[in-house]
Design a protein around this nucleic acid. Sequence first.
DNA 1: GGTCTTGCCGAAACCGGTTTCGGCTTCCCA
DNA 2: TGGGAAGCCGAAACCGGTTTCGGCAAGACC
Lengths: 366, 366
Amino acid sequence: MENLAAPTTPVRLAPRRVTITDLAEHLGMTKGTVSRALNDYADISETTKTRVRREADRMGYRPHAQAQAVRTGRAKSIGLVLQIDEHDGQSPFLKDFIAGLTGATSEIGWTLTVGSATSDDDMIQTMARMVDERKVDGFVLPRARVNDHRLNYLTSQGVPAILYGRSNFFAEDTAAYFDISGEDAMEDAVMRLHALGHNRIGYVGGVDVFNFTHLRHEGYREGLDKAGLDYDAGLVRWGARTAQDGADAFRSLIESSKPPTAVVFSTDETALGAYHVARDLGLRIGDDVSVVAYDGIPEADHSDPSLATYRVDNRSAGHKLIEMLKAIIDGAPAPSQRLLETAKFHAGGSISAPRRTSEELRAYIL
Amino acid sequence: MENLAAPTTPVRLAPRRVTITDLAEHLGMTKGTVSRALNDYADISETTKTRVRREADRMGYRPHAQAQAVRTGRAKSIGLVLQIDEHDGQSPFLKDFIAGLTGATSEIGWTLTVGSATSDDDMIQTMARMVDERKVDGFVLPRARVNDHRLNYLTSQGVPAILYGRSNFFAEDTAAYFDISGEDAMEDAVMRLHALGHNRIGYVGGVDVFNFTHLRHEGYREGLDKAGLDYDAGLVRWGARTAQDGADAFRSLIESSKPPTAVVFSTDETALGAYHVARDLGLRIGDDVSVVAYDGIPEADHSDPSLATYRVDNRSAGHKLIEMLKAIIDGAPAPSQRLLETAKFHAGGSISAPRRTSEELRAYIL
DNA sequence: GGTCTTGCCGAAACCGGTTTCGGCTTCCCA
DNA sequence: TGGGAAGCCGAAACCGGTTTCGGCAAGACC
């Protein structure tokens, strides 16, 4: 006996849990019957069902999730794998998002299993491990990319998944998704600025691996179109991710020979970078130059002046993603689970009617 | 050994996983033997072990985690329950922390199960559910409180847990913890300021439900002591949590009749609140008034001037917490798992030798 | 009154692993 | 040469559930 590689003795767990066998014994029936009663099978009488249920929660019975999983193949858990080498930008977003996800999962009696990855390959491997070990029944995929590799992998494996965002430019996705229309917001932003009297409206976009970057840029373009303004590549900057990137882009726009009198940023974070530059140049945002952005991070509200932005409710997004994913896992066809909502405009002190023309602005800066 | 036609399965496209029975069949031995070989039992020959292992990963065998859990009682998962009604302050902290936790859990082949709660009662219930369903083997408890109720519950139930922080003021905790000595940092901050020439050093502390609030305050006190300065309750403010709170506290200190020339904040976030107030009052931080804080959030680095602070590595903290918790789950006595590290000072432009005395400062402000 | 349903539940197999128990070889040594 | 101890593995129980199958009893139908 001592030659067995017995693992070190585990710590004592809670007072022995009540199993379905205990329950069956107390009720004087077989565990099969108890199981079917609890799972609401049609071949169990109403009388028996209520008797079983009552006794179950009198005794504090909770089914052993793992044991159920062995037979049913359902881990009753949703997977979420975070890319952790990424820039910090998802931080503010993360907490609300997780709150939404966990809230919804616990409502249906499931749990959220979180992993992390340091590279694209690692991401796939981490997800593969979770699937192979049957730890999760499906995945939520935040920060959708163009032609998202996670989605490609999972669908090839037949694992249910849902995107937060879209992944196929403007073409209809083949997969399930929940998204908020950034393009509508950008379009609205441009038209709103135009209505205030702005005619030179700049744009600072994001990194092109993310699908939303393309969508929002298209929205900006659409907005110009509806406002009757021409698209001028000189007014557009790309690839901004951090506040610093936003600052650089803003400086390059505002110091150009024909500076914009208003700038639309595709994210709040990059927009806030512009605040420092403006201060440096002696410009007052919301007065000398207007700024609108997108996301609705807390800092946007606390900045001075407060940033006009389109607010995204990540909490409710997380909630809906779980509901939709659950439907897919339960057999709904993925294409039936697609939802696109719009962000709400949140007024702020960062926009106003133009005080100076582009020329005057340039002269003022010099 | 003829191949039967595949049964007509529902939507489950995933290629049927290889089970331990398949593996045993291929190897021509019983699944019991295979299991023991894979789990490195002493009564299996080395030859057989390697043969089994080789075949296992040739066939891509991955044990079904849930099935293992049924017999072993190990879910191979760590629980983390977030309080989601809380102020946003834990956002920046959250991502790094989760990265550390998930990184460490996946290194040992485990996973992280995340839940959320909206109140203290909900917190206990959520944890109870995870334990009862045997979804987790132990908990990491972030944001330790004084006499932490989560810890009390879990130890009463015999469920392994580890605190991120301490929960018993200065008395030795009875439970396991990993923490970073905020008190040492505060003490060092005061002495550092004193060495620069400051003699009136204010303090802005946190909310008293959290244990670290008391520890850091005591560190401040200790620092004064070592610097030979008297503790003056008029220089101390409590209960600051948000940037706004920090701003209010700072204003109240700086507008008092004998303002401090330097202020120690117990968190970066509250310290950054002071920046706005300083600007309003025409004071330059790091010049007219010195500020030191604690945490090392990214914004501290991007602020102008950059904030001198004590940096906490939440990623590595998460990693260590998992290692220590795993040891407890494997049978190590909880009291043996205690670790206290120190935060690294990160210089910033927010401190300098005092330019004005307290009196001059007051006059300057008026 | 006999036959057919229908309702309801027990019995047992099953899910994919782990662990106990015992028996057969082989080796060692008297 | 015999007996005991290792060494090694097969057989089967077990973990806590779910699901299939079949049978009994009561009611419906003719």
